[in-house]
Simulated assay, not measured.
Amino acid sequence: MTIEEPIAALLETFRSHERFLITSHARPDGDAVGSSLAMAEILDQMGRNCLIVLADEVPHVYQTLPNVDRIRLAKDVLEIEPDLSVPAILLECDGIPRTGLTGLEGRLLLNIDHHASGRPFGALNWIDEHACAVAAMVYRLALAAGVEITPSMATCLYTAIISDTGSFTYSSTTAETFAVAHDLATRGADPGRIARDIYFSNRESKIRLLGTALSNLHIEGPLAWSWVTAQDMERTGAGAEDCEGVVNYLISIAGVESAVFLREIPSADQYRLSIRSKGGLNVAQIAESFGGGGHRSASGCTLDGPLDVATERILQQLRTGLC
């Protein structure tokens, strides 16, 4: 199947239904939020009604995005849309559980993903692991649909791309990535303002938590790791979103080829892991072996505690991979 075929199939489905649900993964990031908002605009212009439903709150740094107030929070989508004949568009998910939502079962599922761990779980699946972000795929949908890429849509798509490429530093960044970013800037996205909103609007709690994480830094040759406990997060007033990006400080160290950051999940005796590499090690495969997934150089998973056990399990795999 060529890339054009799933785009055509998606557009045909959009034309054949009046209403849609749009969702993405739990603990949404910039790509999840920006792509969802842009997708809603596409459907708006096609004369369709749509609802955006997420299981968790939009992170602080993305709350300035245009139309972000369209996003509704729920754990069960049946509370918002009980009609099972309304299709659901799942962005950046490898299955229903990744959304953190119930009430999606029994619907027509449209699956759009760019992760190497993506799975064809939907009635219609478009998985392009070469795309730098799902936002780049939504951009292609907008062009194919012939809708106007408005300044608000361009802002959401640019935000999603810059956040999911690590400010154009990940290996997924290509000449096409910059071409899309350039086009979005010409259509109304303001790169300077977007960068300020994402990178210079951090809450105090995030910086205090970062200090704790860096104080826990360990380095072993080409491997770096750190962690924060639930007690650390309570002490600093931090939430889960404040842990986003901490692992990037670890992988930025000269000589480090792979890094992992562990965050304790309160009251669960589990740890959420963010795993990175500089390209030599496929951390997506390691994350998948623990029930997670992601990209070759940026992935994640969840491990049972206690901390020393979870840490040793992931370090063993990373050490083996780096040998």
Rank of each mutant, 00 (worst) to 15 (best):
205 S>W: 02
176 E>K: 08
98 R>V: 09
3 I>C: 01
241 E>A: 15
115 H>Y: 02
22 I>N: 02
26 A>Q: 14
62 Y>F: 02
18 E>V: 10
4 E>I: 15
17 H>S: 02
6 P>H: 15
251 I>Y: 04
203 R>K: 12
195 A>W: 01
150 T>P: 00
113 D>S: 06
73 L>F: 13
201 S>D: 02
219 I>N: 01
251 I>E: 06
163 S>G: 08
88 A>E: 07
213 A>V: 07
77 V>P: 01
267 S>H: 05
187 R>L: 07
158 Y>E: 06
123 A>K: 11
317 Q>A: 14
307 L>C: 12
28 P>Q: 11
177 T>K: 07
110 L>W: 01
323 C>E: 11
168 F>Q: 09
79 E>N: 13
272 R>A: 14
20 F>I: 15
210 L>D: 04
113 D>Y: 02
251 I>C: 04
181 A>F: 13
71 I>D: 03
16 S>D: 06
62 Y>S: 00
78 L>R: 12
83 D>A: 14
99 T>G: 02
224 A>V: 10
150 T>R: 10
192 G>A: 15
218 H>C: 08
130 H>R: 06
59 P>A: 13
79 E>H: 12
169 T>E: 08
311 T>H: 12
282 N>C: 14
203 R>A: 14
101 L>I: 13
60 H>Q: 09
128 D>W: 03
82 P>K: 10
236 T>K: 09
322 L>N: 01
207 I>L: 15
229 T>A: 05
53 V>S: 02
289 S>T: 08
40 A>W: 06
259 A>L: 04
66 P>N: 05
8 A>M: 03
150 T>Q: 11
101 L>K: 11
21 L>N: 09
205 S>M: 07
123 A>C: 06
182 H>C: 12
247 V>T: 07
128 D>M: 09
186 T>V: 11
81 E>R: 09
232 D>Y: 03
266 P>T: 10
51 L>K: 13
62 Y>I: 00
242 D>P: 01
48 R>M: 01
83 D>P: 01
124 L>T: 06
171 S>M: 14
219 I>R: 06
155 T>D: 11
237 G>T: 03
106 G>D: 07
8 A>V: 07
191 P>R: 05
149 I>R: 08
190 D>N: 14
252 S>G: 09
58 V>Y: 00
88 A>R: 12
276 R>N: 15
115 H>R: 09
240 A>Y: 10
104 L>P: 00
72 R>I: 13
9 A>S: 11
87 P>Q: 03
193 R>A: 12
206 K>I: 14
314 I>Y: 10
81 E>W: 07
35 S>Y: 00
205 S>Q: 15
139 Y>A: 05
254 A>Y: 05
193 R>W: 06
186 T>F: 09
323 C>H: 08
71 I>Y: 14
117 S>Q: 01
20 F>C: 06
111 N>Q: 10
148 E>T: 15
